[in-house]
Amino acid sequence: MVPWDYFLDSTVSSWISIDEAAFLESTGLPTTAGVLAVMQVDCRATGLRKMVAIQLPGGDVPALLQVHLGPHQCAQQIEVTHAILLDRTSQEDAVDLVAFRRGSRLLTSMATHRFLLEGSASTFPTEAFDFGPAGLPPDAAWKLQFDPESLDEPYLGAVRLFINSSHPSAPELLSGRPSLTQSVLFHSIVEHLLLIVAERFPAEAQSEYQADSVGEALEHLAKVYLGVPLTAAISLLVQDRAETICRLQAATSFLAANSR
């Protein structure tokens, strides 16, 4: 199995089959014509939803459903569900207890299949590649991509940490082991996230946020490393950025060899 990462092109595949005679008897339909097999893939962390629908073959023949997931589209985990829908409207079938409207759900799988992509401790989704060929400064160690449109946007879909795989510090940065380099990286990320939010959304901070959103993630960082809610952290950064960053250095153990 190829290890999953954010650059990976992947495909979710599933076979669906039915007992045609039992299906027609239970639904009251005369034929499987106009009946679709549907697979839906959701990633709550990034807000992704993709669906595929194909004609359900008759004669008990299995049908293959496939959904392509491109790079950067998913994080944390995906959920896969299945259904069978009617794709036609027929007044001839409009009798008691027989579905006849297009879009009628004939069968929904009771199971939701969840696939864990990156474990449960991914605070900053990370990708490693050679910066030079990608048009980034070849001597830079990392780049943080953080461009949210709102505080309610899914956090894991809004943030990406890029590590320059050709940089001498790349192995240390990717190892996750406490080190001086890790402390600098971590402080840089937290500072960057808080400053971006303070500059873009000074009036949008609130006391509660949607689960797994940018607001919830930054609320947590503000409370842990500045000891105040995000609303207060934004005020501190606006009123006295230098002192607030100084406090953040102390809280994140900046330049401490045994931190992070």
Rank of each mutant, 00 (worst) to 15 (best):
G59H: 06
S109H: 15
I54Y: 10
Q239G: 08
P3I: 12
L106I: 07
E216N: 08
S17T: 12
R241E: 15
F100S: 11
R88P: 02
N258T: 14
M51N: 11
A217M: 08
L24H: 00
L161E: 06
T32F: 04
V98K: 07
I189H: 04
H187L: 11
R177D: 08
Y6M: 08
F131V: 03
Q182G: 14
P229L: 10
L230G: 02
H167T: 00
L85G: 01
A251W: 03
L193N: 05
R247S: 13
G34S: 10
V61Y: 09
Y155C: 13
H68T: 14
W15C: 09
E204G: 07
D60F: 05
S13C: 11
V190P: 01
P148L: 04
V95R: 12
G215M: 05
I78Q: 01
D42E: 13
A242P: 00
S122P: 06
Q206N: 11
L107W: 14
A111M: 13
G47N: 01
V38M: 10
D93M: 04
V95G: 15
A134M: 06
T181H: 09
S207N: 14
A37T: 01
A140F: 11
A203H: 11
L56Q: 02
L218Q: 04
Q76G: 10
P137E: 05
L194A: 07
T81H: 08
Q145A: 15
H113I: 12
K50H: 09
L97S: 12
